[in-house]
Amino acid sequence: MNRALVLRVLALAAAVAVLEALCRVGVIDRFTMQPPSRIAVDLWSILATGKFNAAILKTLTNAGIAFALAVSVGIAAGVAIHGLKALREGLDPLFATYYAIPVLAFYPLLIILFGLGDAPQILIGFMLGVVAVIVNTLNGLDRVPRVLLKAARIGRLTPVEVATQVTLPYAVPYVLTGVKFAVSYAFIGIIGSEFVMSRGGMGFEIAFAYNNLDNATMYPLIVLILAVTISANLMIARWEKALLARRGLA
């Protein structure tokens, strides 16, 4: 293990220990938050009893669909926009201001259009993530050295082959940056809209527990969401790093 990693683990452990102490001593009262050790035990029993399995499954499935849509549509749109210079010039300023839009504000509208089901939530997660994927795909495609494009022409590749065999493979590490955003945004979109209005899911259960002062449910579910998103993010980051290392860039 390298030193940076050891330090990181130590810092995290110290933060948890301080939190534990503050809760035990009573600086943080138990109506506000339970000690971390208690949260771990509660999480274990939630998973063991399977009490919230349906909610967990619903949230993970919807986040997964929103994520997959954002990534596939984002990459395809990125390639298409990159190929159409005029469209690109028109859209660039819109991408730059896109994240000033509070996408969640459209949720009620989407519910009116699609009903109070999974679709509006998936759409919110998708809409949040897709532009990050497009922007990062474009960034990667912009960086493809001209000489590789010339080599592709000498190899008489068709435009589709150029995209799948040259420009996209070159851009993968940059696309992955967008993919990491898509993971976060998928969860923010799904859980955020479950908070606001829904019939189930982890966000719904957390809000429900909050209203009932049920800390034994609320905190373990929050920790579970953190664990899922952080591990997904770490996995992609590792892949990204491996690809960059292969190119002598990390």
Binding site: V147, K150, A151, I154, G155, V166
Partner: peptide, 29 residues
Amino acid sequence: PDGVGVVFQEDACFPWLTVVDNIAFSLRK
């Protein structure tokens, strides 16, 4: 044209491919 090969001034290796995959690149077609 068919039958023309070019070696460019700049490094034109595909960084994500191994040496043999780079060499076989145009042979794929």
